[in-house]
């Protein structure tokens, strides 16, 4: 009888705190999304009004599409390049450790720090990018990378890609070490080409790692807030706005808390698809 309570002795305090700071707030945001609230007076229940407004809101769609672009670029560049780098660096190459450390070093920098440094890189006057272009004779390509609505989003994503690629590479490197060398040796003896070896042996064996990488990448791209806030604040003309930042600016700059809550709920529901995928992967691992 007493043994039954033992785990709860350890869980009680953590669970109380977790309920107050994480679980209850999540539920409360759902409730707030059905209200109009300026943060001072008490919230007024307005039913689905926020959502109706949301689905007619061009900024909402703009942010959603920007999130989508962010996601596609994140899946293309960091995942593909990260895998490629991991394949190269898992071989016996001189200075491999130094190369690895250099490639993932941006990860330890705060997104805000990277945002600041890359804002300088993109500066129209005196910035590294325009300076380099001028120096190598491509002056015609120089522009205000962050002030031009055509390039601003890609410029911001570029900074985020720089931070994320090394992480992906690390995850793939860890996945590669778990592949037994005898499998690789056997395929070499059987005369498989390097590409065949990659396509038909390594890639299938990397599948669990790949699933995790893709889910983490998707979640990271939807969490994008710091880069946008530091580099462009969503501008110019919402060209770099994303849901995470739009929610913040509605709730904490315009004090439309109810509307902000509705955006948060949509963001949460989109992310929940990926979270569910992740949970499924974890459970699969548990059952094995």
């Amino acid at each position: 009888m007493k043994r039954k309570f033992v785990p709860w002795m350890f869980l009680l305090l953590p669970l109380i705190l977790y309920t107050i700071w994480v679980i209850a707030p999540t539920i409360y945001t759902f409730y707030l999304s059905f209200t109009e609230w300026d943060g001072l007076t008490s919230p007024q229940f307005i039913g689905l009004e926020n959502y109706k407004y949301l689905f007619d809101d061009p900024t909402f769609y703009k942010s959603l599409i920007n999130n989508l672009k962010w996601l596609i670029i994140f899946l293309a560049f960091p995942v593909v390049v990260g895998l490629f780098l991991a394949m190269l660096l898992s071989q016996d190459i001189k200075w491999a450790r130094g190369f690895k450390a250099s490639i993932y070093s941006p990860m330890i920098l705060a997104p805000v720090v990277i945002g600041l440094i890359w804002s300088w890189i993109y500066q129209p006057q005196g910035g590294l990018l325009n300076n380099t272009l001028t120096y190598i004779g491509l002056k015609s390509l120089t522009r205000g990378w962050l002030s031009n609505p055509e390039t601003a989003l890609y410029a911001v994503i570029g900074a985020a890609v720089w931070r994320h690629t090394g992480y992906v590479m690390l995850l793939f490197l860890a996945g590669l070490t778990s592949i037994s060398p005898t499998v690789i040796e056997a395929s070499k003896i059987d005369g498989a080409s390097a590409w065949q070896r990659f396509r038909f042996i390594i890639l299938p064996l990397l599948k669990p790692t790949t699933v995790i990488v893709i889910v983490i990448t998707m979640i990271q791209s939807l969490r994008a807030f710091d880069f946008v806030s530091m580099m462009t604040r969503g501008g110019p003309f919402n060209s770099t706005n994303v849901l995470a930042f739009y929610m913040y600016s509605e709730a904490f700059r315009n004090y439309n808390m109810g509307y902000g809550a509705a955006i948060a709920v949509i963001l949460f529901l989109i992310m929940f698809v990926f979270i569910a995928l992740y949970l499924r992967q974890i459970r699969k691992g548990e059952l094995e």
């Binding site: 700071w21 994480v22 209850a24 707030p25 999540t26 409360y28 945001t29 707030l32 979640i219 939807l222 969490r223 807030f225 849901l243 995470a244 929610m247 913040y248 709730a251 904490f252 808390m257 902000g260 809550a261 955006i263 948060a264 709920v265 963001l267 949460f268 992310m271 990926f274 979270i275 992740y278």
Partner: peptide, 12 residues
């Protein structure tokens, strides 16, 4: 894994 945005207003 949840986005901070779902917590911001209530935690505030």
């Amino acid at each position: 894994l949840i986005p901070f945005q779902i917590l911001l207003i209530p935690v505030f």
